[in-house]
Structure formats: C-alpha cells, structure tokens
Simulated scan of single mutants.
Amino acid sequence: MPESSAVAPAEPKYTYAGTREYAAGELIEGKRKSVSPDSDAVMDHARASGRFAARSGLVREEAAAVLPGSFYQWTKDGVTAPGFAGCLPVLMIVAGIIWLLTLYIANPKSIGGDEYGVPVLLVVIGFVGVGIAMKVESKRFEPQRKELVARMVEAALQTFDTEATARGPRPTPQSYGVGHEGAERLAAEWMRHLGVLDAKVTRQSGDGGIDVTSTHYLAQVKNYAGNVAIESVRALHGVATAERKRSLFFTSGRMSVESVAFADRAGMALIHYDAVAGSISGLNDLGRAVCDSRSIPDVMPVL
C-alpha cells in the first residue's frame, strides 16, 4: 500500500522525558480567571489541576511541590479591583476624561492647548492612584490568599490520590524496543495507566486475535512498522461487538486510511505506541482523545 494511503502517527503530545516539565509548566501557566475566593471555580480549578498532575505522570511528592506555587500564581489575578481605596482615583480618571471630552467638543481645534493640562494631569494621577490602591488591596488580601492556596492544595491532592488509585503506573521507556509479547505487555500497561486496571494479556487459544482483555475493553496489538490492514480492524470490531466490549488497537506502525475510516465508524480507538520513547499518540480522533485525556473510561464509557 503506498505511503499516501496510510495514516502516520502524529507527534506525541506527551513524551516520557518531558511529561513532568510539561505538567509543571501547564499548571503554572494554566488559564487564570478573575474569580471570587469563595467561587466554586476556584475549587474546580484545584481539583482539575490535581487530576491533570496525576494523569501527567507526576508522583505525589512532585505534585505537592508544584501545586502551591501554581495556585499562588493563579490567584494573583483574584484581586483585580482596586477596592474601596481606589474609588477616589477611579473618580479622578472619569472626571478627567469627561473634562477632556467637554473641552474637545466645545473647541476641537484647541486640542493640545494649555487648557488640557489639568484634566490630563488628573487622569494620570488617577491611574497612579489606582495602581497604588491595587497594591494595597493585594497586600491586605495576602493572608486570605495564603489560606485559599492551602485549601486549593488540599483539594487538589485529594483528587490526585483518587485519580492515582484509579490507574496503574506509567510504562517506562524500553531502550531496546520490544518484541511481540513485550508489545502486548506494554499495551496492557498503557491500558492500566489509562484507567483500565484489570487489563491483562490474554493467553487463550481461539481468542479471535485479541491480545489484551478486560471486563469492558479489548485490544489488539501489531508490533511492526508496516500498515495495519482493514481486515485486522474489522476482526477486532467483530469480536468486541460479540462480547459487548469497547475496542482499542495498538500499533507501532501506521494505519491505512480505510482502517481509520472503519475505526471511526465503529467507535474504536487507534493508538500508536513508541516503546523506546515511552509515549503514545492517537491515529484517529478517538485515539487522540484517549491520549490527550489520559483516560480510556472518560472517553470510551463502557457499554
């Protein structure tokens, strides 16, 4: 089959070497919003961060070290209003702008004249006052901010612990690659890491080509560099349908365009694994969703 009719593995979003650095950076640079300290959004962000840390491969000690700084950075935007102390500077800004507009409307040709000096100065002083007021307000908020960060860390670590117990350890890179049996074990490890804790390599004869099985999921593994033909994908779907289970196809190679199209219709996740790098990436939309979310059950609910 020509290269043009095959789907090559995408560049992995996560690699084993960069996972921890990526997780720490994502937590710190995460999208921040101006929210009330009592808002549900604050704890939602904390729990989401704990879940992200667990799925990204951080161990608990690393998460506990990263999260406080991450949340302290995130909450810096929690105080954006200048508070009561900033009311006068804000009024000065408004008064200055109205004054300037009045002068311009009265005589547009006089713009830049001496009469503009006082209102411009009023606006400048107002902005300086707002900046000072915000610093004062931020300092006043500091004890409350530290307490808030502590509560966020506690909520995040609780979620981290729950998430960590719902998945196996991340597979380690295999410097010399893997053979076929090693690939089956690797796929089972990835499935456990992605939340299917009872995934195990099957040794049954007449299993329809199934390499990894669990209560709700089946997987086939092709450990070669070539293209996976549509017949293999159809066969996996047939067995999964008969057993009323969701299906995943792991390969170190590529998928034909026909295989991808069939898997999309069948609701099958196609996943490329790199045993040496210790990474995975999706070969279709469902596979990419599984890899990006780091959770098979979240993306592929049981039937």
Rank of each mutant, 00 (worst) to 15 (best):
L100W: 06
Q158N: 15
P173L: 04
A150E: 13
G177P: 09
M134A: 08
A156L: 07
R167I: 03
Y116C: 05
P173D: 05
G131K: 07
Y104A: 09
T172E: 15
V94F: 09
A156E: 11
E163K: 04
M134P: 01
K139V: 11
Y104N: 05
T162N: 12
R170P: 12
I111H: 02
V153H: 08
L91H: 11
V123I: 01
K146L: 07
I97T: 04
T165H: 10
M92N: 14
G113C: 05
D161C: 14
I105Q: 12
D161S: 10
L91V: 10
V120L: 06
I132E: 07
F160Y: 14
L103P: 04
A164S: 13
I125Y: 04
M152C: 05
V94G: 06
L122A: 10
V118Y: 13
T172V: 15
Y104Q: 12
Q144H: 09
T159N: 03
I111D: 03
L103S: 00
L91K: 10
K146A: 12
L100T: 13
I105G: 02
M152W: 03
G168Y: 00
P89H: 00
Y104V: 12
A150Y: 00
E142F: 06
V123A: 00
I93F: 02
L91D: 03
T172D: 12
I132D: 06
P169F: 05
I125R: 03
R170Y: 07
R151T: 15
V153Q: 10
S175A: 15
P119D: 01
G131C: 06
V128W: 08
Q158L: 14
L121T: 15
I132S: 06
G113F: 03
T102D: 05
T102S: 06
V94Q: 09
T162I: 10
T159V: 01
V149H: 04
M134D: 04
A166N: 06
M152Q: 08
E115W: 05
I111K: 08
L157C: 09
G96E: 10
V136R: 14
V120E: 07
M92V: 11
G129R: 02
V153P: 14
I98C: 03
I125C: 13
V128T: 05
P89Q: 02
L121Y: 08
A155V: 13
L91F: 11
M92K: 08
K109Y: 08
V136P: 04
D114I: 13
P108A: 06
L122V: 14
L91R: 11
D114Y: 07
P119W: 00
A106C: 03
V149G: 01
I105K: 11
G112C: 08
A150K: 14
Y104F: 11
